[in-house]
């Protein structure tokens, strides 16, 4: 028994943040230069009353509408988010009800960011191949825009909101379709991509809501998302090439055996540098952040769906997925696309 990705759908909120809009708000900034560097044209932004779960539900509904599966067949829901509806109950439980899934369906949230899709595939594979689930929905959804201070151009430029729903089912195929996996964690980097308050370690207060100007002219409070870009970049340089090599050696494959590389779509600058460092030819290195920005755990499924729609991902292709970011947390795996 093998776990297989049978379909991917995604959903984007209607709100848009374009480079022209950012340029109007931050006139001291060269919009052209930023666009050239990071390659992002538009970020999609959730409405005030629109949660990650709402987008996730819309993405999942597309599977039922397309006939990819019946809602009553879904027997497990994995929901990856760092933007839950509540502290409790579990957002996945609320989604089970809203999606009209069976009451014999398992459902859980897991909190990961840019590595979340890889971990979700790992969990899904475990659940399916041990016979605990047969038709599983892995939903990734994020509204980082709600964590970001409007005056923080450093992160507003990069992140966009989105959700993706990946349908993973059991197949009688003998050949492995997802895996092997390489995982990694280094919690010492947690402070470099963080919303410092709002949990129990540091509850929100009038003091934590004080907005301060960092030395680069970005405004934020302790209640907002903070990212140390150079720490994140150097973490990526230290970690990702090593993980790619580990995955290749674990699977007995060489770089040339891989038909398509789909990395976490952080931005053009980071991906282009990683691509060159790894010596991956441009035509095998998929990029799809231009119209979305960095959508955290949904970048990889969105890229897979887009690559498939554009004919760049075909049945039989061997695909390498690599996710990395907040935690620090990272993971990599191979897909035999069916």
């Amino acid at each position: 028994m093998q776990a297989v990705i049978s379909a991917i759908e995604y959903d984007l909120p209607e709100g848009m943040l374009t480079n022209d809009m950012l340029g109007a708000e931050f006139p001291e900034w060269s919009v052209e230069k930023i666009e050239e560097k990071i390659g992002i044209g538009v970020r999609r932004i959730a409405a005030k009353d629109e949660c990650a779960s709402d987008m996730g539900i819309r993405a999942a509904e597309k599977h039922f509408a397309s006939g990819a599966c019946n809602r009553e067949d879904i027997d497990y829901l994995l929901f990856c988010t760092q933007s839950p509806d509540y502290f409790l109950p579990t957002t996945a439980c609320i989604m089970q009800d809203r999606l009209g899934l069976s009451k014999s369906c398992g459902a859980l949230d897991f909190n990961l960011g840019c590595s979340g899709y890889i971990y979700g595939l790992g969990l899904a594979k475990g659940l399916i191949e041990t016979g605990q689930a047969r038709h599983l929905l892995l939903i990734t959804a994020e509204t980082y825009s709600k964590h970001i201070h409007p005056g923080d151009k450093s992160v507003r430029t990069l992140f966009g909101d989105a959700a993706a729903a990946t349908l993973i089912q059991s197949s009688d195929d003998a050949e492995m379709k997802i895996g092997p996996f390489v995982y990694g964690t280094d919690g010492s980097g947690g402070k470099n991509l963080i919303v410092p308050t709002g949990g129990f370690r540091t509850p929100r207060s009038d003091e934590s809501a004080q907005v301060v100007d960092d030395e680069q002219g970005n405004l934020r409070s302790q209640d907002n998302l903070y990212m140390n870009g150079s720490e994140i970049f150097t973490f990526t340089l230290r970690t990702i090439p090593k993980s790619v090599k580990e995955l290749l050696s674990l699977s007995g494959k060489s770089l040339e055996d891989i038909d398509l590389f789909v990395f976490h779509q952080a931005n053009k600058f980071m991906l282009e540098h990683l691509r060159k460092k790894l010596n991956v030819p441009e035509d095998k290195f998929y990029m799809s952040f231009k119209n979305y920005g960095n959508t955290v755990s949904s970048t990889i499924p969105i890229a897979l769906k887009d690559a498939q729609s554009e004919g760049k991902l075909k049945s039989g292709d061997l695909v390498m997925l690599v996710g990395f970011g907040v935690g620090y947390s990272w993971g990599a795996t191979l897909l035999h696309w069916v």
């Binding site: 230069k33 930023i34 560097k37 680069q216 870009g229 970049f233 150097t234 600058f269 540098h273």
Partner: peptide
């Protein structure tokens, strides 16, 4: 010399 230039510098040194 802004945050983006620092990243560009890190990338140049890495390369």
């Amino acid at each position: 010399w802004d945050s983006l230039a620092v990243l560009t510098f890190i990338a140049m040194v890495d390369e």
